[in-house]
Simulated scan of single mutants.
Amino acid sequence: MPARRKAAAVVAGLAPFALTPLAAVPASAHGSMGDPVSRVAQCYAEGPESPRSEACRAAVAAGGTQALYDWNGIRIGDANGRHQELIPDGRLCSANNDEFKGLDLARADWPATSVSSGSYTFRYRVTAPHKGTFKVYLTKPGYDPAQPLGWGDLDLANPVATATDPVASGGFYTFSGTLPERTGRQLLYAVWQRSDSPEAFYSCSDVTFGGGDPGGSAAGATPAPSASAPSEEQIEEGTDRSTVEHHGHGDDDAGTSAEPVAGEVRAAGSSQHLAETGTDGSTSYLAMGGAATLAVGAAVLFGSVRRRAANGGSRNGR
């Protein structure tokens, strides 16, 4: 086969790969409850290096500041609905992840959101949309925040909210639920189980029913400020410190990745397309980059073949 035809055949063979999106892009779903704000998001909003509340300072003392910069990464890569099997009592808020162990501290002074019984609009802060189902559980009457949180403390038979595939808008999933009659300090436990992957996310949100001191007034406890979610500026400023944002969740955990689902979704208020498995626009850029790399390689190979042919011709003419 002439040299030019050989080079052309190589280029043709590479072309299909140049047009194929790279399959090794890691999954990157992230999020935490924004309203009522989760413990980790609240402490991040206070400032990881110098939180205001005693509870958040204790959480940093127990687990370090990195957990707060990774506020949207409390998750289990291979959960697949096995939440109670994988998370022991006393470790619910951290999802049994040592990095977030400070969030499991049994205290009555965690900053809390004031709520009332009746309809409630939940807002889940998301940094990578995914298909999946949210379930939010409330603690039972008699819940004692000074004791480690266990599965038996939650009314698992009656979630206060369930939402499947809500639409992300403005950085939040928004869905409705109903809060039953309660008094005093309680806790809302949110589970976001993806349907395109076994990965699941978890968060604890402290709330108080009936007004009163949202920071808790247990004996010896200093009242904490009312809960408040981090601002967009705070989230942006902390991105460089986040291992979640830098590495996604698929790098060292193949169980978090999933085959792409047909079609794509676009986060409301954004021009960026997001695959339903959470791979964002970077997938297409990686694909284009791969195509460009292959094209350059093919050109080099083609030129090399031509030079060899030319050199061979010169030698044959000697």
Results as ranks from 00 to 15, higher is better:
Q147A: 11
P148N: 02
D155F: 03
S176Q: 14
K135V: 06
D153I: 01
P166I: 00
T174R: 15
A161F: 04
V160R: 01
S169H: 03
F172A: 06
G171K: 08
A161T: 07
G150S: 15
T164E: 11
G210E: 14
A163Y: 03
K131H: 00
T178N: 15
A161P: 09
L138Q: 13
Y189A: 13
G142L: 03
L179H: 12
G184A: 11
S195Q: 03
P148S: 02
P129A: 00
A168T: 00
T139K: 04
N158A: 12
F209K: 09
P180G: 08
D165T: 01
A200H: 04
P180Y: 07
Y189F: 15
D165R: 00
D155W: 02
D213C: 13
P129K: 02
A157T: 05
W151R: 07
G215L: 08
L149P: 03
F201A: 03
G215V: 01
G171M: 08
Q193E: 15
G171I: 05
S203M: 07
S203I: 12
P166F: 05
D155T: 11
T183I: 13
P129N: 02
S169A: 11
G171D: 04
G132C: 03
L179G: 15
R182H: 15
P180M: 04
L154Y: 14
G212P: 10
T139P: 07
T139M: 13
Y202S: 04
V136S: 10
A128D: 07
P145N: 10
G212H: 12
G150C: 11
L138Y: 09
R182T: 12
G210M: 14
V136M: 09
Y143F: 09
A190F: 08
T127R: 09
L154A: 14
A157I: 03
Q193N: 11
A163W: 04
A146L: 10
V191R: 07
K135N: 09
P145D: 08
G184F: 05
V167P: 00
Y202D: 04
V167E: 02
A200G: 14
F209V: 15
Y173I: 05
D213H: 06
T133Q: 13
T127E: 07
P214T: 15
Q186E: 14
T127Y: 06
S205M: 05
A128H: 11
G212F: 12
V167R: 05
G152N: 14
R194M: 09
G142I: 02
P141C: 07
K135L: 08
C204K: 06
A168E: 10
C204W: 07
D153V: 01
D206Y: 12
R182K: 10
W151E: 15
T208F: 00
G150A: 14
T162I: 15
